[in-house]
Computed example of a mutant assay.
Amino acid sequence: MKSKLLTAMAIAAITSLPVLSAQAQELKIGYINSERITRESAPAKAAGARLEAEFSKRQTELRGLETRLRQAEEKLDKEAPSLPETERVRRQRELSEQGLQLQRKVRELQEDLQRRQNEEMGALLERANRVIKQIFDSEKYDLIVQDAIHASPRVDITKKVIDAINAQK
């Protein structure tokens, strides 16, 4: 009795393999390279331009401060042997404080830039996810994978997503 049951189960499994194989061939899979989307899409390029415009003035000011600080340090190095000890110490202290202020301003700029980049990237990825969902629904995908280790160009739909994002206003 037990062997008849096992035989029947084996026959059922073997006969269902062609059905499972046919279903697997109908599976529609897409692949998305999100790094390409964040690099090549028009909204990503526009966000980069906005950030550049927003932060270029501060970056220029900080480079100017850094240059002036370096020049003041060089001047102090040249004049140090002829300066009275108290004057030399005072100027060194001032330069040290200015260096710390410059470091603080650079850190603040980096933090502000990172925050704004995250905001822009979040908006872009939200937009991309909506487009991916639309493509998923309209083209009847079973699975869309993002950032796979290996993917065939046959299933890469990144260009389609970029084009759809660029077409939106």
Rank of each mutant, 00 (worst) to 15 (best):
D112Y: 00
E119P: 01
L27V: 14
G30T: 09
L65I: 07
K160T: 10
P153G: 15
E119T: 07
G64N: 05
N166V: 10
P18T: 10
L125I: 06
K169D: 10
A47I: 03
L76E: 09
A12Q: 02
E54Q: 15
K160W: 04
K140L: 07
V131Y: 02
P18C: 07
V131G: 02
S96P: 00
L20T: 08
K159G: 03
A72L: 00
G99W: 02
G48R: 07
P81N: 02
V19I: 15
Q134F: 11
M1Y: 06
E73H: 08
R58Q: 15
L100P: 00
E119Y: 10
S41P: 04
L65F: 04
N118R: 07
E79S: 12
L6S: 06
E61T: 08
G99N: 07
N33M: 06
S41T: 05
L17Y: 02
T7D: 13
R116Y: 01
V155K: 04
S82K: 03
L100C: 02
E73Y: 10
L6E: 12
Q114H: 07
A53K: 07
R39A: 15
L17N: 04
E119N: 05
T67A: 13
A151Y: 12
E108R: 10
L113C: 00
T15M: 15
A123E: 14
L69Y: 11
D147C: 09
G30R: 02
G99S: 11
Q114E: 09
K140I: 00
Y31K: 06
E54V: 09
E35G: 05
I29F: 08
I144K: 03
I29E: 00
A80D: 07
T158D: 07
S16Q: 04
R39T: 14
R130I: 07
Q146A: 10
L109G: 05
L125D: 02
T60K: 01
